[in-house]
Design a protein around this nucleic acid. Structure first.
Length: 273
DNA sequence: CCAGTATCCTGCAGGC
DNA sequence: TGCCTGCAGGATACTG
């Protein structure tokens, strides 16, 4: 579900409403996830710690604490965080609840269990398997200088390269499709067969679409919501994602879809070459 | 080494 | 109405 703009939207909400609060208790049940969720371990570590300003790298959230350490959160496809009062009904698939000193609860809900929540001791970040090797941030305004050479060097369809978190961190299926449409590039085209000029344009479109999506609070397709329950409004601005069979907003050619890198990708065969 | 596929899991939409 | 299939915003292990 959540790509960079959604995770950033969550981060901002938490910066506002979670920073400064202390954990008083941890509730939940350990469950097998992509990385094991050790509720007992978190129950020993977290109580007494205060949340600082959260950080984000790609689709990962880093909830720094004092005393030092960080809760690493990835939301996978269906994960969400809720920051709510105890009177709010507990959703199915709520795997862990952090009770805060003000009575509010930070809940990690993830039906499909592709996400995870892991504790990182100080210094463990650089050696963490999820974080090590993560690419640079696409919001960087110099992206059009460093991304094109990387795309040029790798093999495979440009769409697959954009989704590779080691190349650039945070792009998922929605924004890859949108950026490629904006840049007029066919998702199947091998990255190394695209000129540096067009790749620079693509890099700028990647950055632009992510920034616009953040401004709209992310994209709610089905169930994305901030910890406070707000939805994202970028869905109305999607031009190709999920719109196969409908006319291209630019030229009215019927949009097609093709599976690339195991993911359905919509594109306009006329505008994207 | 590379690219492509299978897999983890639940929920939901669509077809019959 | 109900059953079945396929697909979903991600990441990674495996196959050939």
């Amino acid at each position: 579900m959540p790509e960079l703009p959604e995770v950033e939207t969550i981060r901002r909400a938490l910066a506002h409403n979670l920073s400064g609060l202390r954990v008083v208790a941890v509730r939940g049940r350990s469950i097998s996830m992509r990385r094991p969720l050790e509720v007992e371990t978190l129950g020993e570590i977290l109580p007494g710690r205060r949340f600082l300003e959260p950080r984000r790298h790609g689709k990962y959230l880093l909830l720094d604490t004092d005393p030092p350490g960080a809760l690493l959160v990835h939301l996978g496809m269906s994960g969400r965080l809720m920051l709510v009062g105890p009177e709010v009904a507990v959703l199915p698939h709520t795997h862990i609840t952090l009770v805060l000193e003000n009575g509010y609860e930070l809940r990690f809900v993830d039906p499909r269990r592709f996400g995870h929540m892991t504790w990182l001791d100080p210094g463990a970040e650089s050696g963490d398997p999820s974080l090590a090797g993560l690419g640079r941030e696409p919001l960087d305004d110099a992206i059009d200088t460093w991304l094109p050479p990387m795309l040029k060097r790798r093999r495979g369809p440009i769409k697959t390269l954009l989704l590779d978190q080691r190349v650039v961190a945070g792009i998922g299926n929605i924004y890859a499709a949108e950026a490629l449409w904006r840049a007029g590039i066919r998702p199947t085209r091998p990255g190394r067969h695209i000129s540096l000029e067009r790749l620079a344009l693509l890099a700028r479109e990647v950055r632009r679409v992510l920034i616009e999506a953040i401004e709209q609070g992310g994209t709610t397709i089905r169930d994305f919501a901030t910890p406070d329950g707000d939805f994202g409004y970028f869905a109305v601005r999607l031009r190709v994602y999920g719109r196969q069979g409908q006319p291209c907003p630019e030229c009215a050619t019927v949009l097609r879809a093709k599976v690339i890198g195991g993911r359905t990708t919509a594109f306009c065969a006329h505008c994207q070459r």
